[in-house]
Amino acid sequence: MKRIRYAAALLLVAASMPADGVRAQTLRQHGPHVHGIATVDVALDGPALQIAVEAPGANLVGFEHPPHDAQERARLEAVLAALRAPSGWLSPAPGADCRLLDADVQPHGYDAPPADGGDAHADIDARYDYRCATPEALAYIDIRLADRYPATRQVVVNLVLPQRQDRQVLGPGDHRVALAP
């Protein structure tokens, strides 16, 4: 019984200690890496619309290792180019007059094989900053990731809106995310 109390006290002390050292060692922290599922976070604050995408590389590129040849390099570059210019798969409602200000696309895991020689897992993260002239007219956003990248079978969309927080799941053939109540 004393050992259990001692272990519990030790865990409480460890949990209350600053985790800065641990945070400094963590390069990036994301949700689970699940093939076939992409996560899209949508936040609207006044005229500022921010959209973040997180997807396993297998969903978008078709492989999760550094490119082996010119064909794989071209495939990766084509996907990154399409993500940097999202108008082909991401469309805020036209009435809101949203303009893309910045797009940041980051591939992870495509530059070198895993140091431990284990299975490769590559992800692509993207962030889009829009400014909407009429944010109150932003009734929906069309997200066509699954149409453009068929290995993406499900898109989980997390919404943080002025009037509510919500989650919608898009399946094959679904692309419209309703923002209006």
Rank of each mutant, 00 (worst) to 15 (best):
H30Q: 12
F63T: 00
A19M: 10
V61E: 00
A48G: 11
E72G: 02
G31N: 09
L76S: 05
P32R: 15
S16F: 12
T39Q: 11
E64Y: 04
P56S: 02
E72Y: 02
F63N: 01
P56M: 04
I51K: 02
P47W: 08
G36V: 05
A74M: 08
A38F: 06
A58I: 12
V40H: 08
T26A: 10
Q50D: 14
N59D: 15
P18D: 06
P18K: 09
A74D: 15
F63E: 00
P67I: 01
Q71G: 11
E64I: 06
P67W: 00
A55Y: 00
A15C: 14
D69G: 10
E54A: 07
A24Y: 12
D69F: 06
Q29K: 05
D20W: 14
V42Q: 03
A52S: 14
A58M: 12
M17W: 13
A38C: 14
G57P: 04
G21S: 07
Q29N: 10
T39G: 08
L44P: 08
H68M: 10
Q29S: 14
A48T: 14
R23G: 07
R73S: 14
G36D: 10
L76C: 09
A43C: 05
A74F: 03
A74G: 10
A43T: 14
L60N: 00
A38I: 11
G36I: 08
D41K: 10
H65K: 05
P47C: 07
G62E: 02
H35T: 11
G31D: 14
L76H: 04
L44R: 10
D20E: 13
D69M: 09
V22K: 05
L76Q: 03
A14I: 13
A58N: 11
R75Q: 15
V61M: 01
T39A: 11
Q71W: 07
